[in-house]
Design a binder for these strands. Structure first.
Length: 364
RNA sequence: GGACGGGUGGCCGAGCGGUUAAUGGCAGCAGGCUGUAAACCUGCCGCUCCUUGCGAGCUACGGAGGUUCGAAUCCUCCCCCGUCCA
């Protein structure tokens, strides 16, 4: 028995079959991939956007005037926008946290902008996001229990404020708002947090603050401690994970949605994911390799191009490399999730999980 | 034929008596990347050896000599390259 489940999420921009992997499109684009391929070849049902980045450029009011984010970027399917909570972590030198919110100094020009639980809801409503995220504090690892508790409690207060504000909204009734469970690497804090957030009766819940440098086993342990406390009839979104072989692990722990920059970023950096593990296409050993990246992959890249050609494109710094590599890596991730869903429906998910564990067991 | 300016590690290019196996950049090689400040970042990058160390030896700044305790750096001759003048 595992906690794996297959479900459906209904949005104004389509039905999403879960478990689902969501490609990251921070600045209203999944880097290197055209929307045509995202919907066609890749058949992604939902992608991410980012509040912090899109607020700074081009600005949420501009996006509203352009008819919303979907229309602006010509993406007819669902969009989930992160709140800027991750930038609290990644841009830690450019921000200051207070009870009121987060004061960011733009990485683009240094301008100060205060992000509050309420303002981030408004910005995401202006985007017309299908799923908006509450402003949270993504805590670095390691953190003391005391710090993690204080941070978690503030995240809960922010979530309540965001929710109160969200429920008074007059526009965009199609936007759902997900709170985010924090609590560092402490199961008691995770449980406390989840218990308090559940009171908001949200349409879905996220688990955040993972993949911030902790051991993999810990991220999974935190997830495992949290999911049972979240309502069974609402989607559960584990933010920012993971490696391909970890996806089934999260699904087994009751996670329905995941996103990660690894497939897209690593693709651009010459690191491809295959059914047999990693393939660093930039390595000299592929210079004259006529084979495809992954013989088991049916993506456009694998069907048409050799490792030698891809390595050449990487070496030559050609734009096409990013596109072909990203297309492949995202196909790999999305295929894993489609296959995972299929096995859940067929009742063979435990076998798939066992197979993945056997193949990717930590060496020695 | 003459006058200048040059020849530096795979390439470009600093250095212009010792702290220089020689700054930088490129190319090359390897590694990292987890709600994207990322088409990015880090390390290695003359050869050999080993007790892998701010280790030892060797070779190296066009060539051959010379000055000097010490030369990529100064001198002499030679060979190339560029620009200009005949």
């Amino acid at each position: 028995m595992t906690g794996a489940r297959a479900g459906l999420i209904h949005t104004a921009h389509g039905v999403i079959e879960t478990p689902v992997f969501m490609p990251v499109g921070t600045q209203a684009t999944v880097k290197g991939v055209m929307q045509r391929d995202l919907a066609g070849e890749l058949d992604a049902k939902i992608i991410l956007g980012n509040t912090y980045h899109l607020f700074l450029r081009p600005g949420h009011e501009l996006i509203r005037r352009m008819g919303g984010l979907h229309r602006f970027m010509s993406w007819p399917r669902a969009i989930l926008t992160d709140s800027g909570g991750f930038q609290v972590f990644s841009l830690n030198t450019l921000r200051k946290i207070s009870e009121e919110g987060v004061l960011f100094h733009s990485h683009l020009n240094g301008d100060a902008h205060l992000f509050t639980p309420e303002s981030t809801v408004d910005v995401q409503l202006a985007f017309g996001s299908d799923i908006a995220m509450v402003l949270d504090e993504c805590l670095p690892y390691p953190a003391s229990h005391e710090d993690a508790r204080a941070s978690m409690e503030r995240t809960v207060r922010w979530a309540r404020k965001a929710y109160t504000h969200y429920e008074r909204r007059e526009t965009s009734l199609h936007t759902a708002l997900f709170p985010i469970v924090q609590g560092g690497m402490y199961t008691d804090l995770r449980r406390d947090c989840a218990a308090q957030l559940v009171e908001l009766n949200a349409d879905g819940y996220a688990i955040g603050g993972l993949s911030v440098g902790e051991p993999r086993a810990l991220s999974q342990e935190m997830t495992e401690a949290t999911t049972p406390l979240l309502p069974a009839d609402r989607p559960r979104y584990c933010m920012g994970v993971g490696m391909p072989e970890e996806l089934p692990e999260y699904v087994a722990r009751g996670v329905d949605m995941m996103d990660c920059v690894l497939p897209s970023r690593n693709a651009r950096n010459g690191y491809l994911f295959t059914t047999h593990g990693k393939l660093v296409i930039k390595q000299a050993q592929y210079k004259e390799d006529e084979g495809p990246v992954d013989a088991h992959c049916g993506c456009y890249t694998c069907l048409n191009f050799s490792r030698a050609y891809l390595r050449h494109l990487y070496q030559a710094n050609e734009i096409l490399f990013s596109t072909l590599a990203t297309l492949h890596n995202l196909t790999h991730y999305l295929d894993i999730m489609r296959q995972t869903r299929q096995t859940i429906l067929l009742g063979t998910f435990p076998a798939l999980l066992a197979r993945v564990r056997a193949e990717f067991a930590p060496e020695q």
